[in-house]
């Protein structure tokens, strides 16, 4: 399978934070959700991919090419949507488009106007007059109008209402109808990805906790609930994260098969959500 994005042992040191040799790959034609709590290193990773930050070690390959040696060429085929628009508030949408479009060799005005119509964006208004949701849609329209092969989105849904967020998901499905396109999508709102993401990469405190197909994650992990008397020092170790009260416990176990051996069917087993997995892993590590 062809890889669109490869991050290999990527390292970046800051004063109080470091990205510690992270690695993951996104195959062509799929959507990867990049999740983790605030401050985990999501934006840092994306800025490193876009060469907005300089890496201290490791390698990043986009479309199989080094992201710095072939920076301009690669960026021709990247569409980006960030949590803020970063366009000039003082310009109208049309002026902004006219400024941006000439930088892209395969800019397609028809596609752009198609999205402007779908998103109902007012071309003659200034950027500052747009709502947050409209700014995101405008970014998206620009990102989708130059035949991008990789769409990089950094927290595109933060601060948006559920309706706009669900519209975005529909658009993502639309995008990946074309097998050539891939999406890398960072968010701390995991429910956005529950449906659409093919792969999940989970980053926590500058380290990758897991990076695999979402179905595998959801099939492997399970939430176990039971009476507090069932717990002992041995079976407690099997949990990735656990929450105990006076009467009962509930926790996350990373292998469904283990549960039967440990508790002999005296517990309730439930399917976890991505959020459950994220929470238990983050908290589990805190109390460990």
């Amino acid at each position: 399978m062809e890889n669109i994005l490869e991050v290999i042992n990527l390292r970046k040191n800051f004063n109080k934070f470091a990205l510690k040799d992270i690695s993951f790959t996104l195959p062509k034609g799929y959507i990867m959700g990049f999740i983790g709590p605030n401050g985990a290193g999501k934006s840092t990773t994306i800025k490193l991919i876009m060469n907005l930050l300089k890496k201290d070690g490791g390698q990043i390959k986009v479309f199989g090419k080094d992201h710095i040696q072939h920076e301009k060429e690669i960026k021709q085929h990247i569409g980006f949507v960030y949590d803020e628009s970063h366009f000039y508030d003082e310009l109208t949408l049309d002026e902004t488009k006219k400024f941006i479009a000439p930088f892209y060799k395969s800019w397609d005005d028809h596609v752009f106007h198609k999205y402007i119509k779908i998103f109902q964006l007012p071309l003659d208004k200034k950027i500052k007059e747009l709502s947050k949701g409209m700014k995101m849609k405008f970014s998206l329209a620009l990102a989708l109008s130059h035949d991008a092969k990789l769409l990089i989105m950094d927290e595109p849904t933060s601060g948006l209402d559920p309706i706009v967020r669900s519209e975005l998901l529909d658009i993502l499905y639309e995008i990946i109808q074309d097998e050539e396109k891939s999406v890398f999508f960072s968010t701390h709102i995991t429910s956005d990805l529950e449906k659409v993401a093919d792969y999940i990469t989970f980053i926590h405190e500058g380290e990758i906790v897991l990076s695999m197909a979402k179905d595998d994650i959801l099939d492997n992990y399970c939430i176990v609930k039971g009476g507090i008397d069932l717990l002992d020092t041995y079976n407690q170790k099997a949990f990735v994260g656990i929450r105990k009260t006076q009467y009962n416990f509930q926790g996350l176990i990373d292998c469904r098969e283990k549960v039967q051996n440990l508790f002999k069917g005296n517990v309730i087993i439930e399917k976890p959500s991505l959020e459950d997995i994220m929470l238990y892993i983050v908290r589990g590590k805190q109390y460990a």
Partner: peptide, 10 residues
């Protein structure tokens, strides 16, 4: 903060 946008363009 447009330099973020400019430097993301080709």
């Amino acid at each position: 903060k447009s330099e973020i946008m400019l430097n993301s363009l080709p």
